[in-house]
Computed example of a mutant assay.
Amino acid sequence: MKITIDTTKCSGHARCAAAAPEMFELDDSGYALPYAGEVPAGHEDDAREGVLACPERAITFE
Results as ranks from 00 to 15, higher is better:
residue 1 M to V: 10
residue 1 M to Y: 12
residue 2 K to Y: 11
residue 3 I to V: 07
residue 4 T to C: 11
residue 5 I to G: 02
residue 5 I to H: 08
residue 6 D to H: 02
residue 8 T to E: 13
residue 8 T to A: 12
residue 12 G to F: 01
residue 13 H to Q: 14
residue 15 R to E: 06
residue 15 R to D: 12
residue 16 C to P: 05
residue 16 C to R: 05
residue 18 A to H: 10
residue 19 A to D: 13
residue 19 A to Y: 09
residue 20 A to M: 11
residue 21 P to T: 13
residue 21 P to R: 05
residue 22 E to H: 12
residue 23 M to N: 07
residue 24 F to G: 04
residue 24 F to R: 00
residue 25 E to N: 00
residue 25 E to M: 14
residue 26 L to C: 11
residue 27 D to Q: 03
residue 28 D to N: 03
residue 30 G to H: 04
residue 30 G to T: 00
residue 32 A to D: 01
residue 33 L to S: 02
residue 33 L to R: 15
residue 34 P to G: 02
residue 34 P to L: 03
residue 34 P to Y: 06
residue 35 Y to E: 10
residue 36 A to V: 11
residue 37 G to E: 08
residue 38 E to K: 09
residue 40 P to M: 03
residue 40 P to Q: 01
residue 42 G to E: 05
residue 43 H to G: 02
residue 44 E to Q: 04
residue 45 D to Q: 04
residue 45 D to S: 07
residue 46 D to F: 11
residue 50 G to L: 08
residue 50 G to I: 05
residue 51 V to Y: 01
residue 51 V to M: 12
residue 51 V to G: 02
residue 51 V to A: 04
residue 51 V to I: 03
residue 52 L to D: 06
residue 53 A to S: 11
residue 53 A to L: 02
residue 53 A to V: 05
residue 53 A to F: 09
residue 53 A to D: 10
residue 54 C to S: 02
residue 58 A to P: 03
residue 58 A to W: 00
residue 59 I to E: 01
residue 60 T to Q: 07
residue 60 T to S: 09
residue 61 F to D: 03
residue 62 E to M: 13
